[in-house]
Amino acid sequence: MNQQSTQHLAGAGIGLGAGFGGFVGTLVALLTDVEVSIGLTYGAGTGVLIGLLTGSFIVRDRLRGEQTNGVVSGVQVGIPVGASVGLLTAWSLDANLAAGLVFGVVAGFVIGFVLGPILARLPAREDVEQPTTQ
């Protein structure tokens, strides 16, 4: 297994994260009476970050030959990213920072909890040629 054969996980994380993050962001916007377009864009951005970082951690673990726990990888990325984006969103909307932090942590946890196991179960690509040594 080489780096190219597992690198697609980060790309898959970006795509899955954008879709699922947008969904979660829209739900948070509906719960907090924020404009849906704001929730969708912040949620999709958060999902992209969580998916990319989770996929990168899983790639790192596979290249080291370590067993990967997708839930742990996703949650350890999702909570700090969600907290940061939640605070940023609350600050940019002049809303309650504590509420932004709480909603961000919960949203980040949910996104990481769902994306981590999905990315961890994706197999390495078999169509990538192994590098030859000369």
Rank of each mutant, 00 (worst) to 15 (best):
V105H: 06
V36P: 07
F103M: 12
L30M: 12
F103Y: 14
P123V: 00
L122R: 09
A18F: 13
L31E: 13
T132G: 14
V72K: 01
G86V: 01
G74F: 00
G21M: 05
F109N: 08
G15P: 06
V72R: 00
P131I: 06
F109C: 11
G86F: 07
V77E: 05
V106T: 13
W91T: 07
L52C: 05
G13I: 03
L115A: 02
L122N: 09
L40K: 00
I111R: 02
P80T: 08
P123M: 00
Q4A: 14
G39P: 06
A12N: 12
L87E: 09
L31S: 14
F113I: 01
D61S: 04
F20I: 14
F109A: 11
I58D: 00
Y42M: 06
V81Q: 00
P117S: 11
G74S: 02
S84W: 00
G25H: 04
G25D: 03
A12G: 02
G13Q: 04
F23I: 14
A95S: 15
G78K: 03
Q7M: 15
V75F: 01
G22F: 07
G86N: 09
L115R: 00
R121H: 15
N96V: 06
S56M: 04
Q3W: 10
L49Y: 06
N69I: 03
N2E: 08
S73H: 03
F113C: 09
T6V: 14
L49S: 08
L31F: 11
Q76T: 11
G22T: 07
T132K: 13
Q76W: 05
G78V: 08
L30W: 09
L40A: 15
P123G: 13
Q67S: 13
E35R: 13
V72I: 08
F109W: 12
G17Q: 08
S73K: 09
P117F: 04
A90M: 06
L9C: 03
Q76V: 15
G82P: 13
Q134W: 02
V71R: 01
E126P: 04
T32A: 13
E129S: 15
Q67K: 06
N2Q: 14
R121C: 01
V128K: 13
V28Q: 09
I58V: 10
L115Q: 05
E35Y: 01
I79W: 01
G17D: 07
A44H: 11
V59G: 03
P80Y: 04
M1F: 09
G55Y: 03
V114K: 11
F20V: 06
D94F: 02
G25F: 10
N2R: 06
L122A: 05
G43L: 07
I14Y: 11
L53G: 04
L119Q: 03
F109L: 15
F20H: 11
V24R: 08
L93R: 09
G55W: 04
M1T: 15
V75D: 08
I79F: 03
A98V: 13
T133V: 14
Q76M: 10
T132Q: 15
V72H: 00
V34S: 09
Q3S: 14
L27I: 12
R60S: 11
V48Q: 05
S56N: 14
I111M: 10
G104C: 05
G82N: 11
T132N: 12
G19A: 12
A10D: 06
E66V: 02
G13Y: 02
S73N: 15
A83G: 12
R62S: 04
A10P: 07
I58C: 02
A98G: 15
E66Y: 09
P123H: 06
A124K: 06
L63G: 07
E129I: 05
